[in-house]
Design a binder for these strands. Structure first.
Lengths: 342, 342
DNA sequence: TTATTTTATGCAATCGATAACATTAATTTT
DNA sequence: AAAATTAATGTTATCGATTGCATAAAATAA
C-alpha cells in the first residue's frame, strides 16, 4: 500500500529492461508499438509516477526556481510571486519561496540553501541592507546559475533585471502635483541604498527643475516605508519656515500615515494639501479619500521576470547577455491629489 | 570555474574513499581526528557544498514541503505562508508554493506535481470547488505523505487541521452587534461548500437565538467574497419588507462593498447601520471609517500548521493520529460597528 | 608472544531515471 | 542466399551521497 512504483517494477512485471520502460514512457522512437503500449498500460495500471528527484539528480536540473523577497506578505511582493508562479508552473517549474526580512544575513542564508537544493535559477529583490553582492555573484552567475533581479535591482554583469521605470513614476507623480497647482512639493523617500528610491527621487527632482521649481533638500525625508514615519515626516515638514503643500511619497503606507496626520492637524486633503503614493496597494483605492498612487504592476512584473528566466535557461550556448526589462508605471489619479472632482 | 565539488573530488585529493569523506562531514564517530580535520579543511578550501538532491534521493526525504492556497496574493494566505516559511525554514525545510485559483483541477494538478517532486508533506487550504477529496487522500495520506489542512479544512481520517474557531468568530461578532443595540442583523456568508462559512453562520444563528432574536433565512445572503457582491447584497436587503440595521459579513471585502453602497444610499454607518467583517485585512484599520473585523491570525496559523507538520513527520511509528488545532479568533471592534466613541 | 577486541577505513550497493554503447533480431539490398 | 542495414532491446555507467558489511591495522588482553 505504501511502496512506490518505479520503472524497475514495471520492467520486472513485463520482463523487459528498465531502459526500455524509460524509453517507452518518454516517447523515444526506437521502440516497437507493441512494447510501448504494454508499458504505458502497465504504468497506468500500477499507478506509476515519475520520481522527479531521480530525474533531477541525473539531469542536473531540479526544475525548481528559488524566489527571495524581503517579506512575502506585502501586497507588492505577493503579487510578483503570483505572477512568477503562474508563468513558471505552466512551464513545469516549481517555485521555492524564501524571505530575507530585509537582512543580508537571511538573504545569503537563503541563497545558499537554494543552491544546495540545486535550483535552476534564483529570482530576487535585494534587501535594503545588501552590501556583499559579489558574494552572491560568485555563488550564482559565475557558477552558471541564472540570477535575475526584479524591482530592487543592482546593475551587475551577467544579471538580468526586471523593473519599472521608477524615474518615470517619480517624474509623473510630481508633474501631476504641479499640474494640480501645488507649489511646494515634498518627497518622502526610501532607503538611499536602493536604486528604486534613488530613481524615484531623481524623477521628482527633474520634474521640479523642468517646471522651474526649486529643489530643496529639506523637503526630502528618508523613511522606512512604515505608516508612523509618514506622520513623523509631516510633523517635521510643518516645522519648516515654508511648509509644503503636497507630498510625493515613495510608499503608500507612508502616504497613508501622512494623510492621517494631516487630518489630525486639521489640514484638508486634497483641498489644502495633495498626496501621491507609490505601489498602488489595494487599500489606496478602498479609502473614502482614495489615494493617488503609482502602479507597479506586480503580477506582470512577476510574469516577465519568469519569462526572462525561461529565455535565459532555454537559450543555447554559454554567452548569456543580461537583459534589462523596464516596465512603464501608471499613475492612478485619485482623490488625495485632485482638487477638482474626478 | 563551473564544476561542482563532490565528496569524490575531496576523496581523490586526499587519497581516501568517498565513504570516509561522507563520514567525516557528517560527524560520524568512527573516524580518526586526523582524517576528519583533513577532510573538513579540504572541504572548506575546495568550497564543497552538499548536493541535497542526491541526499534526497538516497534518503527518500526531499526536505521540501508543498503549500497550496487559492491565491497567494490575498493578505490572509500570504500571511499564513509567511508563518509557514518562518517555521519550516529554521527547521531545514523549503517551501514550494502552488496556487489552486479556487479550482479543483489546478488543485489536483498541484498535488500531483508536488508529489512527483517528492515533497515530504503538503499543507493546504482547500478550494471552494473541491469535491473529490478521496482522490487527494489516496494520493497522500494513504501513501504516507502527511497532509494538513489549514483554515479551509474538511474532516478526514488521518488529516490534521489547523483552523480558527469560526463559530466563535461568528458568535462574537453577532453578539457584539446585538450589544450595540442592533435589532435586525443580516449575514453575508461565503460558499456553502466550505466549513468555515457554515461555522461562522452557525455562530451567527446561535447568537441570535441565545438573545431571543429570530433567525431569518432572507437575511442570509451567499457571496463570493468580492467587493461588488457586498453592494449587491445591500441592494437586495433593502428591498425586504424589514431591511436590516446591521451586517455581519464573512469577508472584509464584502463588508467594504456593503459600506460603500450604504454610504451611496445615504445610510449612515455606524449611526444607523453597523457592519462587522471577517479576516482583519490590513485595509480594515486604515479606512477613515475603520471596519470592525475578526482576526484570524494568519502568521500564527501558518506557524502552527508548520509545527503540526513537524511533529507528525518527527513522530516515530506508523500510527499517526490526526491533530485538530483550533485557534481563538479576536474581534477587533472599530468604528463601523460602534455607535458610541471608541 | 599470541589471541582478541577495537578503531579506522574501503568496497560496493542503493536511491530512480537516463543514455551511450553493445547486441540480437528482423528487414532490406544485391 | 549471403551481406548489409535497420530496428528493438539489453547492459552498464552515471548523477552524489549514504551505509551495511568486509577488512586491515592498531590496541588491548591473556
Amino acid at each position: 500500500m505504501k511502496e512506490k512504483i518505479t520503472i524497475y517494477d514495471i520492467a520486472a512485471k513485463l520482463n523487459i529492461s528498465a531502459a526500455t520502460v524509460s524509453r517507452a514512457l518518454n516517447g523515444n522512437t526506437k521502440i516497437s508499438d507493441t512494447t510501448r503500449k504494454l508499458v504505458l498500460e502497465a504504468a497506468e495500471n500500477m499507478n506509476y509516477e515519475q520520481n522527479k528527484l531521480a530525474l533531477a539528480l541525473k539531469s542536473g536540473k531540479s526544475k525548481n526556481v528559488g524566489v527571495i523577497v524581503p517579506h512575502i506578505d506585502r501586497s507588492f511582493f505577493s503579487g510578483v510571486i503570483r505572477g512568477i508562479e503562474e508563468e513558471l508552473n505552466s512551464n513545469g517549474y516549481r517555485v521555492i519561496i524564501c524571505q530575507s526580512y530585509d537582512t543580508e544575513e537571511k538573504e545569503i542564508e537563503s541563497i545558499n540553501a537554494l543552491l544546495n537544493a540545486q535550483v535552476d535559477g534564483i529570482l530576487m529583490s535585494i534587501s535594503n541592507l545588501t552590501s556583499d553582492l559579489d558574494y552572491i555573484l560568485n555563488k550564482t552567475v559565475r557558477k552558471g546559475v541564472p540570477l535575475i533581479f526584479f524591482d530592487r535591482k543592482q546593475d551587475l554583469k551577467g544579471v538580468s533585471t526586471v523593473t519599472i521605470n521608477d524615474y518615470e513614476g517619480g517624474y509623473q507623480s510630481t508633474q501631476h502635483l504641479i499640474n494640480e497647482g501645488c507649489k511646494n512639493i515634498a518627497h518622502l523617500r526610501g532607503s538611499k541604498r536602493l536604486e528604486i528610491y534613488n530613481d524615484r527621487c531623481k524623477g521628482y527632482k527633474q520634474a521640479l527643475l523642468d517646471n522651474g521649481f526649486e529643489f530643496k533638500e529639506e523637503y526630502v525625508i528618508e523613511t522606512k516605508s512604515k505608516i508612523d514615519e509618514g506622520a513623523e515626516a509631516v510633523q517635521k515638514l510643518f516645522k519648516l519656515p515654508t511648509p509644503p503643500d503636497a507630498i510625493f511619497s515613495s510608499s503608500d503606507f507612508v502616504a497613508l500615515g501622512a494623510i492621517k496626520e494631516l487630518k489630525k492637524m486639521g489640514v484638508k486633503v486634497p483641498e489644502e494639501f495633495s498626496v501621491v503614493g507609490f505601489g498602488n496597494d489595494p487599500f489606496t483605492q478602498f479609502m473614502e479619500l482614495s489615494i493617488s498612487s503609482v502602479d507597479q504592476f506586480p503580477t506582470e512584473m512577476g510574469k516577465i521576470t519568469a519569462k526572462v528566466f525561461l529565455e535565459q535557461i532555454n537559450s543555447p550556448g554559454e554567452i548569456k547577455i543580461e537583459k534589462k526589462v523596464v516596465l512603464t508605471p501608471k499613475l492612478w489619479i485619485r482623490k488625495s491629489s485632485t482638487k477638482k472632482d474626478v
